[in-house]
């Protein structure tokens, strides 16, 4: 069981549930509007060839965030199916 961790701590292909976003209000609300609200399942797809940015999959679509911001997204392991 994984406690709260940064989204970037996942290994590519691994999924987790968003718990919180530690960013300035403006950026946080944009990420929320993109569907990253607490309780949402998110998959870390891959890192870019040069290590930054990060590709994630949320609500069925692929989104790219810089590592710096992705690190501020807190996740925990999904409830067992």
């Amino acid at each position: 069981m994984m406690a709260n961790a940064a989204l970037t701590a996942l290994t590519p292909g691994q999924s987790a549930v968003v718990t919180d976003i530690h960013l300035a209000p403006e950026e946080r609300s944009r990420l929320l509007e993109l569907g990253l609200v607490p309780g949402t399942l998110v998959e870390l797809v891959r890192f870019a060839p040069l290590g930054d940015p990060v590709e994630i999959k949320v609500r069925g679509y692929h989104l790219t965030l810089r590592r710096h911001e992705a690190e501020q997204i807190q996740v925990q392991s999904p409830p067992a199916a």
Binding site: E27, P53, E55, Y61, H62, L63, T64, E69
Partner: peptide, 8 residues
Amino acid sequence: PLLILELP
């Protein structure tokens, strides 16, 4: 600015 880049 936040990098919001969709990979459609």
